[in-house]
Amino acid sequence: MTLPPNARLANEIAIQFAHRPHDEAVAEIAKHMRSFWDPRMRRLLLEYVDAGGEDLDPLAAAAAEQLRQPA
């Protein structure tokens, strides 16, 4: 399937941190999204997760969950 832009970008970020321990990678990915993504991009990613998150990298999905919490 064709991923929406924010999900595709989340996957591309996730793979760069895949070599790190899981929790550390998830935290780094979430931190990156908070630092560089407009809030509406994060919101759209969460909506995608809520809709099933098909083909979303598990690390990206876990990072998205962290975005639900305050920084």
């Binding site: 832009p5 924010n6 630092s35 993504w37 407009d38």
Partner: peptide, 11 residues
């Protein structure tokens, strides 16, 4: 909060 980057503006 950060704003939109150019590609994000297009999206």
């Amino acid at each position: 909060e950060p704003g939109l980057r150019i590609p994000n503006m297009f999206d």
